[in-house]
Design a protein around this nucleic acid. Structure first.
Lengths: 198, 198
DNA sequence: AATTCATGTCAACAGTCGTTGACTTATTGG
DNA sequence: CCAATAAGTCAACGACTGTTGACATGAATT
């Protein structure tokens, strides 16, 4: 019953699947880079999570830096954050950011990925380019108006700062108990940057 | 003329001055920790800046972590940030943060020190405790009202996020050319957290 | 002046890191 | 069925790190 007898797809899954292991390495690395900084995530650690040898990581991606750059490509997705009319985006983003940490599923919060390695000399230029191209400019196009990129960057900075205080520093002043106040203030700050006439 | 002949103070400065070298190490370390993260600042590097041997650093401060903790004691000073009536604090802080990076003199921006090592597993608990005790709680006492600590932590998060985008990521969207817009939006966001009735 | 103690220097240990080359094993094509 | 190639493993290199103990040298006290 459990054994498939179909002829098209191989019944016995191949012990060696390049695309599969490559995907496993990518997934394991993404999770790790969302937890710790670029320097503090080791290739041996990533390899162990993906159940492969450490040498395979370099074999597939060249260097650790290239692996990081590969992951950063798919991390930011402005469309995933902005949906619906612009009027309620501030509160929506604030709520989503406030209730963030427990949602560590397949997606893996882009801003968590960012803030972990924002201070890394190797990783920060890579991250900065992604933030600008894949978030700031896209969000700027959505909100429009004068100096839209500057306003969009400010929105990104609000989110990054809050997640730094909440996740990295684990400040007791922004626990879930204070979610209402946080969402109200952070949400209106974001909304102010969106609605600003320029 | 140049040589002092007083008897009280030694005219020839001693080649070996424990307090002096200790201070030089502390100063050199503070500057380095404001530039890079805890892990990426080496004790040999600090020692070279202070013109001493690397072993002396451990001799004076025990471990690198204890040295970091020692520095973090004097970094935050809420009174240094908040001055005058509360009505103009938002814009004042925003302006100060916007024109920050070039002011790398003796003071060394506390938030620069913070954001560099916010993602370090070793340093972040130390920093988090200082931020809470020496900034959030003190600022909360100043602004008053309900949930003052939460509002103060939000103010800290705005500053941290902006400096992360501005200094660590060097975003082209928040260059000095856009200072007016940045100060207006960031300033009113901070002011909103201050004036909030609770 | 001689001894004692603080101050500074040197070399080395033990560990981790990214990376690489040689080797083994499985899969596929002829 | 055998050879060729892809996929995976293993061990090791070289460079770095924080830390420590033994040693040298300055200053200060008796």
């Amino acid at each position: 019953m459990a054994r498939k007898s179909g002829k098209q797809k191989p019944a016995t899954k191949p012990l060696r699947d390049a695309a599969g292991t490559r995907a496993r390495i990518l997934e394991a690395a993404k999770l790790r880079f969302c937890q710790r900084s670029y320097e503090q995530v080791g290739v041996r650690e990533i390899a162990a999570d993906a159940n492969v040898d450490a040498a395979l990581v370099n074999r597939y991606f060249g260097t650790k830096e290239e692996l990081f750059a590969e992951i950063s490509k798919g991390v930011f997705n402005a469309a995933d954050f902005i949906e619906g009319p612009l009027s309620g985006v501030g509160e929506y983003l604030a709520q989503r950011v406030m209730s963030g940490p427990e949602r560590v599923k397949e997606g893996a919060n882009p801003f968590e990925f960012l803030l972990r390695s924002a201070a890394s000399p190797t990783a920060s230029p890579i991250i900065a380019a992604r933030l600008h191209k894949d978030f700031v400019l896209k969000l700027a196009a959505l909100i429009g108006g004068q100096q839209a990129a500057t306003r969009a960057a400010l929105i990104a900075s609000y989110i990054i700062g809050f997640l730094t205080v909440r996740i990295a520093l684990q400040s007791p002043a922004v626990l879930p108990a204070h979610a209402d106040k946080v969402v109200a203030l952070l949400g209106s700050a974001i909304q102010a940057a969106i609605d600003d006439p320029g």
